[in-house]
């Protein structure tokens, strides 16, 4: 499996320059007092990872990988592990940058707030990815893009309609006692989400034909 991860990392490597460029823009924006754009790093990491699916697809790597030892299992496993590694890297970058910026700006940093906002961003990114991966494995990256757009659009309409007839703020208020456990809830939910998504993707890919 390590070999497969190395291959995915090698693909991502070519986009590291872009990530570095974004980090600089991020620092400049914060220093100049513009809005916090920390979401852009996880967002870009998603784009970079999705682009590896496109290249895999274009060069028919998935079919080739099956003919390698334990190819079907390792293909899927490595994609999930690479994603987690990438998001970990981005989280570390965000946390380090927050410290550096607060040092330069001589502000006292709210450690808890930084941790929660980073976790929240990573959680959101993971939510999108765990949702996307099984669809990509089933339909291929091109069709998946359209499908995901339709699903997200559909969900937005449904939530919009629900909130029109039901007062969601009451539900949210009743859930406010969970706030104290937010970090643990986010971590546990992420692990469960990734596990379920991985199992679905694996099942799809184990039976996929090319």
């Amino acid at each position: 499996m390590i070999g497969f991860i190395k291959k995915d990392l090698a693909m991502i490597k070519s986009n590291f320059k872009l990530l570095g460029f974004l980090v600089i823009i991020y620092i400049v924006m914060i220093l100049l007092g513009y809005m916090d754009i920390s979401f852009i790093l996880p967002f870009m990491s998603v784009m970079i990872i999705i682009s590896t699916f496109s290249y895999d697809n274009y060069n028919k790597w998935d079919a080739y990988s099956i003919s390698l030892p334990n190819g079907r299992k390792n293909n899927v496993k490595s994609k999930y592990i690479t994603t987690i590694l990438m998001l970990l890297l981005v989280s570390i970058i965000i946390v380090i940058l927050s410290f550096i910026i607060s040092y330069i700006n001589t502000q006292t940093i709210n450690y808890e707030q930084t941790l929660i906002s980073t976790l929240g961003t990573i959680f959101g990114t993971l939510l999108v990815l765990t949702f996307m991966y099984p669809i990509i494995y089933k339909f291929g990256v091109e069709k998946a893009r359209i499908l995901i757009f339709i699903i997200v659009f559909g969900l937005a309409i449904i939530i919009g309609l629900i909130s029109k007839y039901i007062d969601l703020s009451n539900i949210l208020k009743s859930l406010s006692f969970l706030e104290n456990y937010l970090v643990i809830i986010l971590i546990i939910t992420s692990i469960i989400m990734v596990y379920i998504s991985y199992k679905i993707s694996e099942k799809i890919f184990m039976n996929k034909e090319f």
């Binding site: 291959k7 090698a10 693909m11 070519s14 590896t52 290249y55 895999d56 274009y58 060069n59 028919k60 790597w61 079919a63 080739y64 090319f210």
Partner: peptide, 8 residues
């Protein structure tokens, strides 16, 4: 026509 992705 099946091989490693072309960006590596």
């Amino acid at each position: 026509d099946m091989f490693f992705p072309e960006i590596i």
